[in-house]
Simulated scan of single mutants.
Amino acid sequence: MFWDPTFIILIPAIILAAYAQFLVSSRFAHYSKVKSTFGLNGTQLARQLLDNAGLYDIKIERIRGNLTDHYDPKNRIVRLSDTTHNSSSIAALGVVAHEIGHAIQDKEKYVPLIVRNAVVPVAQIGSSLSWIIFIIGLLMVSPVLIRIGILVFSAFVFFTLVTLPVEFNASSRAKKLLSSMGMPSKELEGVSSVLGAAAMTYVASAATAILQLFRMLFLSGAGRD
């Protein structure tokens, strides 16, 4: 019932998301086969970078999955995936350094990270519940519910936007950290290629969210006609 021409609005973002995912998969696969000259695996690099930053209390854990690496600020844990924790490839070390970048952001109270962490609960609700509220509002012809749905989804859009500087900054920190440890420029180019592709996925997410918001606004106007 809710299939309509406004879905066309999302096509550019869908194409961008598919392209970004292709870049991540292809570049990570390529540089996963190229071993770094560091002589460290992902876990060893993470520990050394954390210690160098004075973050001795942050633990490192292995987590299942492919590229499920992340920094948990609440529990102060860096979790490394099956594909990075024991790997000494350029791709793996780049991803690991990126996560340490997040840990250092947390230590330095990097404002965009603080803001993003603060809106996470609302954003998680906004990404799913907002459309339910919005559609009910359309069915009941309730301007109040329609506005609530849009407002809640707007929080998710804000989350995707504030995520961009957080991720770009973490990647920038990662490259500086690896460079300061003496990683050769040729290897740094590989790290930059992998992290640049990963950044595209966040750009695609933000673009999708923004276009979804435009679609909501268009549908809400049509619903009042």
Score class of each variant (00 low, 15 high):
V166F: 01
A155W: 04
N117G: 15
I77S: 09
A53W: 00
I60Q: 01
S128L: 06
L151Y: 04
D57P: 07
A18R: 10
S179V: 14
S127Q: 02
A204R: 07
A155C: 07
V152R: 00
V24A: 08
I135N: 06
V120H: 08
L93D: 01
R173Y: 12
I135C: 05
K107S: 10
L177K: 12
V203K: 00
T6E: 14
I114C: 14
L217V: 03
P5N: 12
A118R: 15
M1G: 04
A20E: 03
F28L: 12
A17S: 11
P73C: 14
S26F: 08
G223H: 05
Y202Q: 01
F153E: 00
G101R: 13
Y71V: 08
M181W: 13
M216L: 03
P12T: 15
L177F: 14
K175Q: 11
G223S: 12
P5C: 09
G126C: 02
D69K: 13
Y31T: 02
I133H: 05
L145A: 09
W3Q: 14
I63M: 04
I11G: 11
S130F: 02
A123E: 00
K59Y: 06
M200V: 02
G94I: 10
R116A: 15
G65N: 05
L161W: 03
S205D: 01
I100E: 02
A13H: 15
M216G: 00
H85W: 03
I8Q: 15
Q212D: 01
S32L: 12
Q21L: 11
A209I: 07
Q105D: 09
I60T: 05
Y56W: 13
S154I: 08
F158N: 01
M200S: 05
D106W: 11
A207M: 12
F28R: 11
V115I: 15
G101H: 10
G42L: 10
K74A: 10
L138E: 15
S185T: 04
S193H: 08
E167K: 06
Y31M: 02
S142C: 15
T208P: 11
S179Y: 15
I135F: 09
A103Q: 10
S87R: 13
Y56K: 13
L80C: 09
T208R: 14
P165Y: 00
G223T: 03
E108S: 14
S26W: 07
K107Y: 14
A209S: 06
S81T: 06
I77Y: 13
A46Y: 13
A92G: 03
K186H: 12
E61W: 09
F2Q: 13
I77W: 07
T43N: 08
T83Q: 01
I133K: 07
I132V: 13
D57A: 05
S193I: 07
W131E: 06
A198W: 00
H85N: 03
Y202K: 00
V203M: 00
V111W: 15
R47I: 04
I136K: 07
V34G: 15
G65F: 09
K109Q: 05
D69Q: 11
T68P: 11
L217Y: 07
